[in-house]
Nucleic acid binder design. Structure first.
Lengths: 237, 237
DNA sequence: GGGAATACGGAGGCCGTTCTCCACTTTTAC
DNA sequence: GTAAAAGTGGAGAACGGCCTCCGTATTCCC
């Protein structure tokens, strides 16, 4: 039985089965996308990405049929950084400092990457590594939170979803202030962290503490904020 | 000397010099814009506004040559609400409650009006009333802050610009969560307020307190975030 | 080197939005 | 009632971004 050439050519380069020139172009596209998204957010015209990569627009679409796939590829590296940041934070001695470092590093990542800022409120198509990376980051973040709470430094009622809320808030600050006052978010975050630190307070606030979104709600939030005009947007539909 | 008819017709209705039908259409447009912006944010297609007002698109452009002018007209009422909210907050007995009420009311306004959420990070063309209204709100808000600080309830280092930062943060939370968890912002705000309340803290935070944006910076921030894609856009740049 | 498979790029169609032009209608003042 | 002024709406031009088609070029394997 005749084996088609296509079979023989499988798994050629990097296990992706791409021709050498195709693989080269793919890498260029990802690099271009990283810088373009960082500068202009997730809703930039894809033309720009192709141009900066030095390839035709068709090549971009051939390799990444949807914007989501390109975004996913472009941010795989950042996603790793995220997981690493969470794990590194864990190595700090002081549990509260550990928490602060985690939060500050992610916020800083938002501050110098418009695309990453946008990404915070969106979910990506489940790529091979990305789900695993997210989980790594999630697990480490939960450990950081738990440790800070056990040490009596972080308020007991804080849950992982609150971290997402915090990042959405930071996204709002960063989006508005980045160009003019690129460190404004640090001040805001300082206030915020003071609110998360344990201390004799809370008795002062009237009314009961509102509940955090459930994990299911969070999932729907993320899925609902799909890539469009941005939304930002002010990403809007 | 012949006096042109146009002279005689000046100051006809409401001091705007519009023909009766034109004035009627103007009002319809403003009403339509209010609801359309509230539902879809500041970047909706203007077609939709004209359609909902029951007028042609040309009429919209004739009356409001730029999107900004329409936005300004549509939000004059909300701007009043804002000033009133600040003044009403002042009537509370407890200075801290007064501050909390102010902040919560503005955040709530953001939460149920996408357009208002977008507006927070933008400046409007200086319309007749709006500058005056903004000032009214500003003055009242400063009084609320000052009173709460004198009472020893609000942290001394908080300035008016921090309130803007807070609203930008809330915009971020609200934009992401509105559809799915419309009260998530309240939880976030509770944390935030705990950070603004005076208590034995701050000593715990490493490093100096970052400075707030200067008023001049704030002005540039607002002017820089012009109406575009969003803004969304996630509206951007 | 040669043929098959794979990849390339840009021209061009599509679509939604912005904004203008102009022939027609309504209002106004007298 | 009438003429001038003011206002109207919708067709369509212009624009920008999205995405595909297809003739040409490159790579791969033998």
């Amino acid at each position: 039985m005749l084996v088609p050439v296509v079979e023989l050519q499988r798994e050629r380069h990097r296990g992706r089965g791409l021709r050498a020139d195709a693989e080269r172009n793919r890498e260029r596209l990802v690099k271009a996308a990283q810088s373009v998204f960082a500068e202009g957010g997730l809703n930039v015209a894809l033309d720009e990405v192709a141009t900066r990569a030095g390839v035709g627009i068709a090549t971009l679409y051939r390799r990444f049929p949807t914007r989501e796939e390109l975004v996913a590829a472009a941010f795989e590296a950042k996603l790793t950084d995220y997981a690493v940041a969470a794990e590194e934070a864990l190595t700090r001695r002081d549990p509260w400092d550990s928490f602060v470092e985690l939060v500050e590093r992610i916020c800083a990542m938002q501050a110098d990457d418009r695309g990453f800022t946008d990404l915070i409120t969106m979910s990506l198509p489940p790529a091979k590594h990305s789900a695993e990376l997210r989980d790594r980051g999630r697990r480490a973040a939960m450990k950081v939170i738990g440790r800070a709470q056990e040490a009596g430094a972080l308020r007991e009622d804080l849950v992982l979803e609150d971290l997402a809320l915090l990042l959405m808030a930071n996204a709002g600050v960063v989006r508005a202030t980045r160009d003019v006052a690129p460190h404004a978010w640090r001040r805001w975050l300082a206030f915020m962290l003071d609110g998360l630190r344990v201390a004799p307070r809370g008795a002062f606030r009237p009314g009961p503490m509102p509940a955090p979104p459930t994990p299911a709600q969070m999932a729907r939030i993320l899925n609902g904020n799909v890539l469009t005009q941005g939304g930002a947007g002010p990403v809007h539909e």
